[in-house]
Write a protein that binds this DNA or RNA. Structure first.
Lengths: 215, 215
DNA sequence: TAGATTGTTAATCGATTAACAATC
DNA sequence: TAGATTGTTAATCGATTAACAATC
């Protein structure tokens, strides 16, 4: 329900707020001011208030923000109040690692199947592994919200096309290629090498070390 | 050797240029204009020229940019002209996946060892797995440029401290915590959950789909 | 030479920061 | 009530875009 267009910069900060709020809640902290929250995340208080103001503002003058309430509001904004069914296409190193990661479930992200061209085992970490041939049928018969692409870059575009043709609207892409997808399909890229290259750059140019943990 | 301070936005685009240049080179394309390059990466020609101008400018009026030359310049800027020795701390799903990934070597990133508190095997993918106890000694006796943190979030800060104490200056952090590190230590975070949450947000708010593949 | 395209300066746009009235 | 802190408007800063002279 954002009124104006929310900027990319704000969107990227939302998960960080959410994580911090969760952390505060675990510590039993019930209220927080924009100043404190900003401090924790290396932001400014103005930025924090502006960000929340985009969505209506969830605080109380003279008090601050109720941690539990703000966390819940952020969960709704991020869409974490519902469950997601995911599949992984590509059962290589990364695909198997994601299949084995236990932390997604608690936020409502459930991985229901893996697909690959080779299927040496029947399941990985209790998640069934199917042949790519059955992808279309599977997507027809199951309600999948997000497809994770962990195939090699050479076939990533083709796989993305296939997924979109089968009605997938959200793609989490780990392949180092720009998938240009039709309107209405959203994509989020994890580019390990780009991240590593940025680290390499920073290693070379050690300065402006004042601002840390920005991304 | 950047004259002015290079902005974060520019730095994040550098690996994307590099990847694109590599791709063009593989296709046998020898020259490219800022307009074309911008098109390929969903940027503007001005942005492309400004970005390169930050580092001196590598083009030629009336011609454009020599693909091989520009690629090499970017490699130097990113620090990819030298080799890096890496270790992985945390041999869980992600640590093992990274150890198994074959793509880092070609860019000079060599993973030389894994560390964990449990060592059920001697090596993973031909990379030796050592006990955490021997971390300090190992770092003393080997020239390690980058440490990858793939331990659980509960111990990530402690591990980071240990690494920094042993002289590590660059950390690639996969744990979902903000490591606040002393000046002179650089960090780059890969936050899977934050990325997934952004995807979730976008799934909810399907609009402004005009600009794709931005990150 | 004429055409193309860079490097770079100036203009614009948008995000961050500052300020403060509203109000709990 | 007095103190604290938000929500929101205005000011500032920086990044993107536009423009064009330089030049290959």
């Amino acid at each position: 329900m954002p009124k104006k267009e929310i900027s990319e910069a704000v969107i990227k900060r939302l998960p960080r707020y959410y994580r911090q709020l969760k952390h505060l809640q675990e510590q039993g902290i019930e209220k927080i001011s924009s100043t404190k929250l900003a401090e924790n995340l290396n932001l400014t208080a103005s930025q924090v208030r502006q960000d929340f103001c985009n969505f209506g503002g969830f605080g109380q003058q003279g008090y601050g923000y109720d941690v539990a309430k703000l966390k819940n509001e952020l969960a709704v904004i991020l869409g974490l109040d519902k469950n997601f069914n995911l599949i992984i296409v590509g059962a290589g190193n990364m695909g198997r690692a994601l299949a084995g990661y236990k932390g997604f479930d608690s936020d409502g992200f459930v991985i229901s199947a893996l697909f690959d061209v080779v299927t040496p085992v029947e399941s990985i970490n209790n998640i069934p592994l199917y042949n790519m041939d059955s992808l279309e049928d599977y997507l027809k018969n199951n309600n999948i919200d997000i497809a994770i692409i962990t195939v090699q870059k050479q076939v990533a575009k083709q796989v993305a096309r296939e997924l979109v043709d089968c009605g997938i609207k959200s793609i989490w892409n780990f392949a180092p290629v720009d998938l240009d997808l039709p309107k209405g399909v959203v994509v989020e890229n994890i580019s390990l090498k780009e991240s590593l290259f940025v680290l390499s750059y920073r290693s070379k140019n050690i300065h402006n070390q004042d601002e840390q943990n920005i991304d």
